[in-house]
């Protein structure tokens, strides 16, 4: 099994997508503003408020979550799966962290040709903080290795 330093990877400019599901096993895809690792096996994903309501309902009901982060210029990506621990408003220091993450994301999107006027319009704030356990990490770079479990290094 390969290894990956998740916290280090999250310092890149990344797009974030979050999967949850309801009681009927119907999945829901929402965007994420940012992801941070807070401790070994623990993270927070920030979901923009404009679309967080149905995802919050799913998470409060069953807790299962998958978080995908991908670097747009290279398509390198990983997926973290685990369980939701808490859904709450983001704190001021967390919002600052999330804003820094969003700035890196927009810089990446700019590098692949999106105009500043387009990127300025993207709403990532305000956002809801979702604390979750990182129980499994998967390689998500497209190709034959996609979906392979990797070991998260501290």
């Amino acid at each position: 099994m390969g290894q990956i330093d998740v916290a280090e990877f999250l310092k890149r400019g990344l797009c974030v997508l979050v999967a949850t599901r309801d009681a009927a096993l119907r999945p829901l895809c929402v965007s994420g503003s940012a992801v941070v690792i807070t401790a070994r096996g623990r993270g927070i994903v920030f979901i923009p408020s404009f679309e967080s309501t149905p995802a919050q309902a799913n998470l409060r009901a069953n807790g299962v979550i998958a978080v995908l982060v991908e670097e747009p210029t290279t398509h390198r990506g990983i997926q973290m799966k685990g369980r939701c621990l808490a859904v709450r408003d983001a704190t001021v220091p967390e919002l600052k962290q999330a804003a820094e993450f969003v700035a890196r994301t927009k810089a990446e999107l700019s590098a692949i040709g999106f105009a500043p006027t387009v990127l300025e319009r993207m709403n990532f704030m305000p956002c809801t903080a979702v604390e979750f356990t990182v129980e499994q990490v998967f390689e998500q770079t497209p190709g034959p290795g996609a979906g392979r479990a990797v070991e998260a290094r501290a």
Partner: peptide, 20 residues
Amino acid sequence: TPAGIATCGADGTPNMAMLS
């Protein structure tokens, strides 16, 4: 632009992936 796809296995575990 790529697309994102969320699915869910029979065990209830969601999965997130990118589509070209």
